[in-house]
């Protein structure tokens, strides 16, 4: 399973989201490959991904970039709240 963490510039925020998504997966006892991407690269990065994690602020732009997709786009409010991210992932994967 593959999860993409997206931010605008592809550095900084997406890396934090990636680290905390990995922590959330560990807490749930799930295994997945989490990759950080910028908005420009998200369409190709998510070709074989199940979930795209991003900020509420970027969700519309991510949807536009992906077009028709099987990926679920999950909006994260607090990038440091592992519990919030775990709850999203559990809902999406459970």
């Amino acid at each position: 399973m593959r999860i993409i963490a997206v931010c605008g510039a592809g550095i900084g925020t997406s890396a934090i989201l990636k680290v905390n998504a990995e922590r959330a997966l560990a807490r749930l006892g799930l295994e997945a490959d989490v990759t950080a991407s910028d908005l420009a690269g998200v369409a190709s990065a998510s070709a074989d991904a199940q979930i795209v994690l991003t900020s509420t602020e970027l969700a519309a732009a991510v949807r536009a970039a992906l077009g028709r997709t099987f990926c679920e786009i999950v909006e994260v409010r607090n990038y440091f709240d592992v519990e919030e991210i775990a709850a999203h992932l559990e809902r999406s994967l459970g």
């Binding site: 931010c7 605008g8 510039a9 592809g10 550095i11 900084g12 925020t13 934090i16 908005l39 991003t54 900020s55 509420t56 602020e57 970027l58 732009a61 607090n78 990038y79 440091f80 709240d81």
Partner: peptide, 23 residues
């Protein structure tokens, strides 16, 4: 410019902004 282009997503937690740009 990053914030002008992509919005305030850099406010990644309540009260905290992570200002940054590409290398």
């Amino acid at each position: 410019q990053v914030i002008e282009e992509f919005g305030a997503y850099v406010v990644i937690a309540p009260g905290l902004a992570l200002a940054h740009a590409r290398p």
